[in-house]
Nucleic acid binder design. Sequence first.
DNA 1: AAAGAAGCCAACCGCCCATCC
DNA 2: GGGATGGGCGGTTGGCTTCTT
Length: 390
Amino acid sequence: MVGSQRCENAELKKGPWTPEEDQKLLAYIEEHGHGSWRALPGKAGLQRCGKSCRLRWTNYLRPDIKRGKFSLQEEQTIIQLHALLGNRWSAIARHLPKRTDNEIKNYWNTHLKKRLDKMGIDPVTHKPKSNVFGLSSGQEKDVATLSHVAQWESARLEAEARLVRKASPLLLSNPPPQSQPCSSINHIPNKAAVSRPQCLDVLKAWQGVVLGMFTLATGGSSLESPTSTLSFTENIPLPVPKDSGIFLGNSKSGITELAPNIHGSCKLGGMTKEPDASTSQWECIDEELNNQMPVQSVVTMEKLDNDSMEMQGMASSRELNEDAAIGNVMEGVLADISVPNFESQLNTFIDGSFGDNVEDNRNYWNSLLNFTDGSPSPSRIFSTYANLAL
DNA sequence: AAAGAAGCCAACCGCCCATCC
DNA sequence: GGGATGGGCGGTTGGCTTCTT
């Protein structure tokens, strides 16, 4: 790289910005925009290099920056996203409106990393550390609980990946002629030819996709490192009883609008949960998963992502940003399901959610992040637990 | 009260990638 | 195609502030 980009010119000022310099930079950008950062210092009368001006603007002077203490929810989000994304601060910052990557990075390094460490959690892998350093009994309990939550969530993710892999190809095959028609998915073409088991597979696929999406969106409370390895076992019980419907919509998230016709009631222990109470819907899913999931398994969202993509012949999620990855997985699965109505609605949803408008995208992510509030999802459980433990 | 330690965070560094010419 | 440039990114530094002894 050339010297000028490194700000090596001896005549250029370094170090803390003075209020006068800030004012000059602000005034210039407000009037002219920043344009070329390299040319800006000269035009604005600043003895700084362009890069220094750019950093000062993006990290401090920009009017849409929120400064000050991080809220509890922001802390939770950072921890969860860090578990999923690692030190990809800019990616994490995209999910925290008005916070800069630099601010989040500093906050992590000075606060959150130490807190996790005190809790006995490795801040790099987000896994509980071994007790070789002598944890107190209380810390051991904390770690054990976190470990359980992590295992539980991992198992859930594993099942979701498996469901997506299994269900979609099945939907492309010809249904057995003697199958019972499905009554709960009335918008699928040739519905008379679709068997009830296949209907369930649609539901399961959707459950996997939708839950997977939320898991990604919320950081998923996955305590696994993005670089963790996967160990699938093929004999995992399906999380949904064959005679049970699963409601996939949620009034908070707007998914009801996306999938208005595939919801049904959720049966649990002889009690039917109606789909009008969003919390109950997710209680249904979470309880079912909690009751039936094995806890000894390791999976990561990245792997889920990759498996889903592999199924669709897509590029690895490593090669895509996480937003696009989610969109592609959903698009791919929907293409397989071959439900035009779903596909068009999903496309609308994705178009609106992953567009060029940064603010809209932020709002979308916020709506997803808010999704777990009041819900006993693993994310919520983890957050609540983390609050108590921190 | 003072000195050293620890915490904190804005700013910098250097690498990388995309785009332009 | 390849060099120049702009800009993004994660890691690190240095100086100021706060805490502890």
